[in-house]
Amino acid sequence: MNALTATDAGLVGCTRCGLVWHQDESHCGRCGAHLHVVNSHGLQAVWAWWIAGLVFYIPANLLPMLVTTTLGHAQKNTIVGGAIELWKHHNYGVALIVFGASIMIPIGKFIAVAYLAITVGNENRRGGAPHLHMLEVVEFIGRWSMIDVFVVAILSALVQLGFVASIHPGPAAASFALSVAFTMLSAQSFDPRLIWRGINREKR
């Protein structure tokens, strides 16, 4: 579809409230958001947050998330270990929630954001609706990964029964929280207008 965009018309649209301004304006006169023309500089931010997220995702999976002490016996669980533990205790539904939120969603997000950022340059396809849809799914679902951090917080706050049982958070909690936050920022920095515009055509 050959639609007239604000950029084609020499204007700039506010990505926050939708109003249209001349390109020499720097801020939206209604909502005050920073106005920026579509360009690929934003992709650098996408990749920077993406790499930061990936860097923190590695220790998040290798280090213990939970340290459970029952009757003097300490047991360290990683993220995957926690999900397997639930599965072994026949809590299949919850095991799947934990596995989905802490492993499938983060990995899916890394792949999806990287795919979106890489394909921006190759504007050979018709319409970007599936790509926009993918970005919206990533934006919507990405924050749910934080669920595991909250589970660790609740368990550690609650299970403090001295010698009988106590749970403490492991260092993976912090790196996992950072990883989730960085990938959220990565997805947020992706300008969906690039899906249609592409790097090569941005000057036109």
Binding site: A3, T5, A6, V12, C14, T15, R16, V38, P192, W196
Partner: peptide, 8 residues
Amino acid sequence: ACPRCDVL
């Protein structure tokens, strides 16, 4: 302007 795809 569409905030997502820039169409006027």
